[in-house]
Design a protein around this nucleic acid. Structure first.
Lengths: 151, 151
DNA sequence: ACAACCAGTTTCATTATGCAACCACATAGG
DNA sequence: CCTATGTGGTTGCATAATGAAACTGGTTGT
């Protein structure tokens, strides 16, 4: 079992998120879930990870309501792990990881899988943060400020 | 030292990214760096983590060229850790973690820090992935496809 | 010169990870 | 019905990562 709330600093949403998915395997499992994997064995074969660790991570992800167990879609007596709404909320994060990896870990011309828009078949654009008026914001355009005192 | 390339699956950019920043502390250090922290002691006090672990993480982050060491800005003989361009590229990821945390780990009305646009002072909008034509894309609007065979 | 501070390293105990073997139940074949 | 195989785990044990605390060596303030 993974420790929780290691931070005095848990009023920061980033820390709370990392507490749930901050270990090495969890996001890879979630990535595979976005790719349509559902069964214990599928995750295990695709990730090549130890079964006990996978079992433990899946348990955590279910506890955190990122995945949920549903009856198998093929009619067998087994169960499947599927993303909840909360789990699907991780989509921008997975895309962020992917785009950062693409930008900084590949030689120009080195092959890797790409994310494409289903409708056009064209690669997706970069993740963007925008201000209320539509300006795209970079790191220097933002500040973190203390939460509003409870109105 | 942390193991590298644990995955047969390293042709996936998500896996390469996680190999660099997939442990618990690294992204919190990067978050603090975005907030302007630069010195060993600042990170250590703010995160409350063991000094040996912090030293090891900072070393990794420097090796990965996410942080770099520069002479201290206050003129002292010490050094400071600052984000490189690659490190600054993690901005959308940190924002993604923050927004996911805000959306799913707080009760309505529970206080937390917020990210605001410097110019307007208003909270930033949600991270968005867009298609080439500007449509906002969700998880179901995208597919991962194998990288183009080297043209 | 001396005390406090800064940025670590070292040592050692605790915890997590990973491999391999094992096991219960489900399904498939004969 | 009986057996063989696949699925989805658990258990035990070795190894690796983590963490707390003490220690160190250079720096700074007085």
């Amino acid at each position: 079992m993974v420790q929780r709330t290691r931070l005095q600093d848990a009023e920061c949403p980033v820390a709370r998120s990392l507490d749930a998915i901050g270990d090495w395997w969890s996001l890879l499992i979630v990535r595979d879930a976005f790719d349509g994997l559902r069964r214990f064995g599928e995750f295990q074969r695709n990730l090549g990870m130890a079964k006990n660790i996978l079992a433990s991570r899946l348990r955590q992800l279910v506890e955190h309501r990122i995945l949920e167990l549903v009856p198998a879609s093929d009619g067998s007596a087994y169960q499947e792990y599927v993303l909840t709404e909360k789990g699907r909320g991780l989509f921008p994060l997975i895309v962020g990881l992917r785009q950062w990896g693409e930008a900084f870990f590949y030689q120009p011309g080195e092959a890797h899988s790409v994310l494409v828009d289903r409708q056009s078949g064209a690669p997706v654009g970069p993740l963007q943060l925008r201000a209320a008026d539509g300006r795209v914001l970079g790191p220097d355009d933002c500040v973190r400020v203390a939460g509003p005192p409870p109105a």
